[in-house]
Design a protein around this nucleic acid. Structure first.
Length: 635
RNA sequence: GCUGAUGUGGCUCAGGGGUAGAGCAGCGCACUCGUAAUGCGCAGGCCGAGGGUUCGAAUCCCUCCAUCAGCUCCA
């Protein structure tokens, strides 16, 4: 019998040709054989019952591996589809992939699923899992696939086959009576799914295009162990507690009102955070050679026609009339900044000219996308426009990349970068777009930053580099962005005088670091679960007198701290100390200062730290120094 | 905007055709207290808005609005 050499975990063994990874796994390690969900042959992921015909390196994939999870979830989506087909035979199959956490399957059905349907589907899935069908791969040709799908009456699947490239391998997978077009791989059998839950129900457009039919999407998650599902559900519960909308209300940071959908109200404590961020921003930008400007919120419609916003951004804008003339509320700060630039003649010696603006913009966002502070209809961008010569492009982009990195590191944010290229509805020549996109790419490559390319996602006037941050449940939000623009300088005929005494055309960068102050504060709240570090805390310390007798001393302490610009509150309420501590703790105040007879006697304060608890008594001067030290270090 | 769900005091939620309920928060009184909730009392709601059905609607129906999840779209 012919043999194949299999390299596994650094050891080489021989097996009969045509053996399956599952058989190899059983021969090598019974435990691993039980856990393995799929295999990799020379780096290519395959089913456990695929055949090994050639010498190869074998890896076994378990739920611990990213690919293992995806395979597991993808297989669960097939189980769900099988259950749906049993219960609702008229539902048409579309796609059912694994996602970052779990899976979904989209169905086309006359009516939508109800939460009761979900329960029924879960029950049916339970049955399918207990029936422990194995997943079988069936390779086929394009013609046969289409024929089969026509028999099955699955029009969406036919569309998918037709969209596959000429030379693509086409396969079906079958478990029990259920067959689905699928590239695989799949887990060995349905019985491997020990725990699952259908988590939500939503509409989704076919192929993600809003012009297409809306399908019914069911989301779910599954695990090879029951305990893992419980852990997952607990984690989701915990994450919900970090929701900035909940914390924002509880901590008195902001509120939203029905009277102003998408227009956040910042409360005093929210404004403290806001002002700390903007103070910090101003200081750092001064250091980096930025000048601050301010431009109006409402400007003539003519300006917006000239800038291209009228043609490319009108849907998102608000309009108004002043003295019979048409005006628009600004959705971006650039045209204002450009007018300001044009107010003077500029020499090449001034370039790069970096003009920063904390600009309030209004954008009409679709009602369904509003989300706390993360997606609003008016927000303050920490904007800046850099006017420069062509030769300064790269260094300026790198400068901004560094500034973003510097800022985000201070908050301990991990971010990922995306490069967005020319969108469909955009202006300018291909040549300039090409040039601009290349400049951004070069800068990223030079910095060695990994990035994902987002085709067609750029601004209408130029390509952009986006910096994305995650919220508490892992949704990512675009915060920083750097956009390179050759169009606006052209449209507005911007010039500077070169060393040759002639007029030249500058290039512009539009950029934000925080992105929007609103969104950034939302991210901050979720990142710290509301327990902001001392330098950002609206209230850094709260004084808690043991009883009313100690109020005078408490006030004395308060005055001293206030003299040192420490943000301090005094809890004058006639309550027990435990009660006051609990409240301060829930308000996530970093320091609780307890004063009673003892403290009065030795002129000290007892310090309780939010994270640690009672850390004993301290004199006031030392305490002030500690807070100042933390502020200094942005802790 | 689309699909689905939800909307009851400041907050969290119960009630589900026959005159609105709890806990927390608030206010008052007592207690004067040592590291995460002292006790008692009081007040607070056109049950998201507008129509309809009904002798009677928070409850059933319709239309809007807002919120939540997702889709699409974007800082």
């Amino acid at each position: 019998m012919e043999q194949v050499k299999v390299n596994f975990g650094g050891e080489q063994k021989t097996f009969p040709r045509g053996i399956t990874p599952l058989e190899i796994a059983k021969a090598l390690n019974a435990k691993l054989a039980k856990e393995a969900l799929a295999a990799k042959l020379n780096g290519v992921i395959v089913d456990m019952d695929s055949k090994v015909y050639n010498d190869c390196t074998l890896e076994l994939i378990t739920f611990e591996d990213e690919e293992g999870k995806r395979t597991f979830w993808h297989s669960t989506s097939h189980v769900m589809a099988q259950a749906v087909k049993r219960l609702f035979p008229d539902a048409k199959l579309t796609i059912g992939p694994a996602i970052e956490e779990g899976f979904y399957y989209d169905f086309d059905r006359g009516e939508s699923f109800t939460p009761q349907d979900l329960e029924k589907i879960e029950k049916e899935m339970e049955k399918i899992i207990n029936e422990n069908y194995s997943f079988k791969r069936l390779d086929t040709t394009r013609e046969e696939a289409i024929k089969k799908l026509m028999e099955m009456d699955e029009p969406y699947k036919i569309e998918l086959v037709q969209a596959l490239p000429e030379n693509a391998d086409i396969s079906f997978y079958q478990q029990g009576e259920f067959i689905d077009l699928c590239a695989g791989p799949h887990i060995p059998a349905t019985g491997r799914i020990k725990a699952f839950k259908l988590t939500s129900l939503a509409g989704a457009y076919w192929r993600g295009d809003e012009h297409n039919k809306m399908l019914q999407r069911i989301y779910g998650i599954s695990f090879p162990k029951k305990s893992m599902l419980d852990e997952y559900l607990t984690r989701i519960e915990e994450a919900k507690k970090r929701d900035h909308r909940k914390l924002g209300r509880e901590l008195g940071i902001f509120s939203m009102h029905e009277e102003g959908p998408g227009f956040p109200f910042f409360h005093p404590k929210g404004m403290v955070i806001w002002n700390i961020l903007t103070d910090f921003w101003r200081k750092e930008h001064r250091k980096k050679g930025y000048h601050e400007i301010k431009t109006p919120i409402i400007l003539s419609e003519k300006l917006w026609r000239m800038s291209g916003h009228w043609d490319h951004y009108k849907e998102n804008m608000y309009f108004t009339k002043i003295d019979e003339q048409d005006f628009a509320v600004k959705p971006m700060n650039c045209p204002g900044g450009i007018l300001l630039f044009k107010a003077d003649v500029h020499s090449y010696r001034e370039l790069p000219l970096r003009l920063g603006e904390l600009g309030l913009v209004h954008r009409h966002e679709l009602s369904g996308v509003l989300h706390g502070l993360m997606r609003v209809r008016c927000f303050t961008q920490d904007d800046a426009h850099i006017f420069m010569t062509t030769s300064q492009i790269e260094q300026e982009i790198i400068g901004v990349i560094d500034l973003v990195d510097y800022f985000y590191k201070i908050f301990g944010f991990k971010y990922h970068v995306e490069l967005s290229t020319r969108p469909e509805n955009s202006m300018g020549s291909d040549e300039l777009w090409e040039k601009a996109t290349k400049a951004l790419k070069n800068a990223l490559d030079k910095k060695g930053l990994p990035y994902k390319i987002n085709e067609g996602d750029g601004a209408f006037y130029g390509p952009k580099i986006d910096f994305h941050l995650k919220d508490s449940i892992g949704r990512t939000w675009q915060c920083g962005t750097i956009q390179l623009d050759f169009q606006m300088p052209e449209k507005f005929d911007l010039t500077y005088v070169g060393p040759d005494g002639e007029k030249h055309r500058p290039v512009m960068i539009h950029r934000v670091i925080f992105g929007s102050l609103e969104r950034f504060i939302g991210i901050l709240i979720e990142h710290y679960a509301g327990a902001l570090p001392v330098w950002l805390s609206p209230v850094q310390a709260r004084i808690l007198p043991i009883s009313e007798k100690h109020l005078d001393y408490a006030k004395e302490v308060k005055n001293k701290l206030e003299e040192s610009d420490i943000r301090v509150e005094l809890d004058e309420r006639n309550e027990k100390i435990g009660y006051k501590i609990r409240e301060a703790q829930m308000q996530k105040i970093p320091y609780m200062l307890i004063v009673g007879d003892k403290e009065i006697a030795d002129g000290n304060i007892s310090v309780r730290q939010r994270e640690i608890g009672d850390i004993g008594s301290k004199n006031i001067v030392d305490f002030i120094a500690e807070v100042k030290q933390k502020e200094e270090n942005k802790q």
